[in-house]
Structures are given as structure tokens and as C-alpha cells.
Measured scan of single mutants.
Amino acid sequence: TFYNFIMGFQNDNTPFGILAEHVSEDKAFPRLEERHQVIRAYVMSNYTDHQLIETTNRAISLYMANL
């Protein structure tokens, strides 16, 4: 899942690491979701930090390219 992918960046001092920290603390994050459209919609609806949203979009693109 995307959640498992992004958790691989925990403790990294990178934008993906920052995203992983936010996702791990977000109890409502769709952890079992595999459809990138649902993940993107969730982030757009629940996150207000523009940098975090952009990082999510980049992470989703990388995740999709590696499926």
C-alpha cells in the first residue's frame, strides 16, 4: 500500500520523511487504501500545508512508477 511505501521514509530528513511522520500520526489516514485517487483526495481534503500536499503528489507518482 501507499502507507507502507511512505513509512519506509520514516526518520529520513527529507520531504518524504516529513510526510511519513505526518501520515504515521494521522489516525484517520487510509492505511489500507491502494487507489492513489482516494489517497490524493484524502490529503487534499485533510491537509492544509501546501508543501505536504506537493510532497504527497510526488510520493504517489514515485509509488505508482514502482508498482
Rank of each mutant, 00 (worst) to 15 (best):
M7N: 03
T56Q: 02
N4C: 11
K27R: 11
R31S: 05
Y42R: 00
L62Q: 08
D26F: 05
R31K: 09
Y42A: 02
E33A: 07
Y42G: 01
I53F: 05
H50Y: 12
D49F: 08
G17A: 11
F9R: 01
M44I: 11
I60A: 04
A41G: 07
I60V: 06
S61Q: 15
R35C: 12
N46Y: 08
T14C: 06
L67S: 12
S61R: 12
D26G: 03
M44C: 08
E33S: 06
N11L: 07
E54I: 09
I6G: 01
T55W: 09
L67A: 12
H50G: 10
Q10C: 12
V23L: 12
H22N: 05
Q37P: 06
T14D: 05
E34I: 15
G8V: 07
R35P: 04
I39N: 01
R35V: 05
I60P: 00
Q37C: 11
T56D: 02
D26I: 04
E34D: 13
Q37F: 11
Y3I: 01
I60E: 00
H22G: 02
A28C: 12
P30I: 04
S24Y: 13
N57I: 15
D49M: 06
V43H: 02
F9L: 04
D26P: 03
D49R: 04
L62M: 12
Q37V: 08
I39C: 02
E25H: 15
F2L: 05
N13G: 14
R40T: 10
H22V: 14
V23N: 02
L32V: 07
E25N: 15
F5M: 01
A59E: 02
L32H: 14
M7I: 08
R58C: 09
N57S: 09
T1I: 05
L19A: 02
H50T: 12
M64S: 07
P15A: 12
I18D: 09
F5D: 00
T14F: 02
N13W: 06
H36W: 14
T48G: 08
E34C: 13
G8H: 10
R40S: 09
Q10S: 10
L67E: 09
F29H: 04
G17V: 04
N46S: 09
A28N: 15
H50D: 13
I60F: 06
A28K: 11
S24H: 13
R58H: 11
Y63S: 02
I18S: 09
F16I: 04
L52E: 01
R31I: 08
E34S: 15
Y42H: 04
G17K: 06
N13L: 09
H50N: 12
N57T: 09
S24W: 09
N11A: 07
A59L: 09
M44L: 12
F5L: 01
T55A: 11
Q10W: 12
I18C: 08
E33G: 02
Q51T: 12
A59H: 04
F2E: 01
L32M: 13
L52A: 03
S24D: 07
I6W: 03
F2Q: 00
F5K: 00
H22L: 10
Y3G: 00
N13Q: 11
T48S: 11
F29A: 01
S61D: 15
